[in-house]
């Protein structure tokens, strides 16, 4: 087994690189399925990251830190919800503003925390199972958020495609006028979806500052929110492909880092582009069927809902 043991740390880093993307993208999937385009994922993630880090360093409690990340993301999202649903502001402009606001606001809050480091989140440690060669650390050597990210994706798939509430949410995203006319509270459903999306983005940010790199640095999400957004679209709003996309992106990010450190003769800038290019290429290649896209894309994505027109 020793010949492939070098793979274990690589796979572990791939998982840690993919988890924040998966968390945020799962949240945004629900938001977009309800017909709302929230471009503020990056902003909600970074605020979640700073809130989690600040809470962890002042209370020392990982549970409170995770809850703080969730709450902070949801709080920022509620501003978005109020502006776009309550005041009928443009979703694209509001989302962009939210990202810019989140980056600035988190820098302000986090100014006093720069340079400190935390203990990473505790890993699940099951004595016998964890000692299994190869599969032990890969299956059982993670912190709770990694397992949660999978559970959340499975839960969201079940919710969207098996539960009645999910059917209603998809109906609202498909045609808000029709949903309204058969009596569903379009704005309330969308607001709840936005809150869920914000909480999941906040959690993705919290994972970054609590586990991936347990420290705070200004703008530490470094564009991951945008990747999560792109993943939702390129996966044509399908949970399975979202998982594939998030892990492909994580894997190529890590592999190109290893390749760079191994010193292959390709400019590092080109290598850094690889995750983006490869992920987009693969997701575009597997989703060329226009009918399937039409069946999965929310019909009212980004459209303003005017009741009683």
């Amino acid at each position: 087994m020793s010949d492939i043991s070098w793979l274990v740390p690589v796979i572990l880093t791939v998982i840690t690189a993919s988890t924040p993307l998966l968390l945020a993208a799962t949240g945004e999937l629900v938001v977009e399925k309800s017909g709302v385009l929230n471009l503020g994922v990056e902003g909600m993630m970074v605020v979640g990251a700073v809130a989690a880090f600040a809470t962890a360093s002042s209370t020392g409690s990982a549970v409170l830190a995770i809850l703080a990340g969730l709450a902070a993301g949801a709080a920022v999202a509620s501003v978005f919800g109020f502006l776009t649903l309550g005041l009928v502001a443009n979703q694209v402009a509001t989302g962009l503003a939210l990202t810019i606001f989140g980056i600035g606001f988190s820098a302000l809050i986090g100014a006093g925390y720069v340079g400190y480091a935390l203990e990473p989140l505790p890993k699940l440690d099951i004595p016998v199972l964890n000692d299994l060669p190869f599969v032990g650390p890969i299956l059982f050597g993670h912190d709770a958020l990694v397992y949660f990210s999978f559970a959340a994706l499975v839960g969201v798939s079940w919710f969207l495609y098996r539960s009645r509430a999910g059917l209603v949410l998809r109906a609202v995203g498909e045609s808000h006028d029709s949903a309204h006319s058969i009596g569903y509270p379009v704005l309330r459903i969308r607001f709840l979806a936005i809150l869920f999306g914000g909480a999941m983005s906040g959690l993705g940010g919290a994972y970054l500052s609590l586990s991936y790199t347990p420290m705070w640095a200004e703008n530490m999400t470094a564009g991951r929110g945008w990747i999560a957004l792109a993943l939702v679209v390129f996966s044509t709003w399908r949970p399975g492909r979202l998982l594939l996309g998030a892990y492909m992106f994580g894997a190529i990010t890590i592999l190109q880092l290893h390749a760079q450190s191994a010193g292959i003769g390709v400019p590092s800038q080109v290598m850094s582009m690889l995750p983006y290019l490869a992920t987009i290429a693969v997701l575009v290649a597997i989703s060329r069927d226009a009918t399937k896209i039409r069946l999965n894309a929310p019909g009212c994505l980004g459209k303003v809902f005017h009741p009683a027109r």
């Binding site: 059917l167 109906a171 498909e174 045609s175 029709s178 949903a179 006319s181 058969i182 069946l295």
Partner: peptide
């Protein structure tokens, strides 16, 4: 007031 991407049954269920 129908949802185009859904099935007949889903539309009625709603």
């Amino acid at each position: 007031s129908l949802f185009e991407t859904m099935t007949v049954l889903e539309n009625i269920l709603l």
